[in-house]
């Protein structure tokens, strides 16, 4: 239990998927302009990442490893993730339109969110057990969401500031993200 907690903390803060591993940066910049979208995206990532983390772990163990075709990992994982995302999108749209309105519109962004794919690959590479994989998927996603929400908070203000023209928008967004990455080094070595 304690180990899992340490794993979670390290995934959220120390190995933050966005700021330390550089995964999922496109939506990080794209959806952080407003707090609302940031929260929506964070929730969607948590949801999809946990699902994808579980499914790919199962696929890896029972199909890829069993058949000794690990080299197909990339293809099979991404196909599974893409299909999963598309399925979830269609499912939500029809069955839970309320949730779809909140989360669903972020789902397409997740297909190309390397954070999802990256975490799935990390889970396998680190040879996590199922529970560990589950925790790490969730924690990484929470880390993603945390960074995204913190970033959105800062960025909402930065967007309104009198940033020099050449630096506006993405440029200053990246610099702000850099500062956040700098700040996140504070957690180094804490576990």
């Amino acid at each position: 239990m304690g180990d899992l907690f340490v794993l979670a903390i390290s995934c959220i803060f120390i190995n933050n998927i966005l700021l330390a591993q550089f995964l999922g940066n496109c939506p990080f910049l794209g959806t952080s302009k407003k707090m609302e979208t940031a929260v929506g995206m964070a929730m969607a990532v948590i949801f999809v990442l946990v699902m994808a983390g579980m499914i790919t772990w199962i696929v890896d163990l029972y199909l890829l490893k069993a058949l000794n075709v690990e080299f197909l990992r990339t293809v099979s994982f991404i196909l599974v993730i893409a299909s999963l995302v598309q399925f979830v999108e269609m499912f939500l749209k029809k069955s839970i339109p309320g949730l779809y309105a909140g989360l669903g519109i972020f789902l397409p962004l997740i297909t190309t969110n390397c954070a999802v794919m990256g975490v799935c690959l990390i889970n396998i590479k680190e040879e996590y057990t199922f529970i560990q994989a589950l925790v790490s998927s969730f924690a990484y996603a929470v880390g993603f969401g945390l960074a995204l929400i913190l970033f959105a908070g800062v960025r909402e203000r930065v967007i309104l500031a009198r940033v020099p023209k050449a630096l506006q928008d993405t440029s200053i967004g990246l610099i702000t993200a850099g500062m956040i990455a700098l700040v996140f080094t504070v957690f180094r070595g804490m576990v």
Partner: peptide
């Protein structure tokens, strides 16, 4: 940071961290 982190004096990064959470 001082007690369990790796830096001797965490003031700089700690204040930057609270700066970061300030908007929230």
């Amino acid at each position: 940071v001082r007690n369990i982190g790796i830096y001797p004096d965490g003031t700089v990064l700690a204040i930057l961290l609270i700066n970061l959470v300030n908007p929230l």
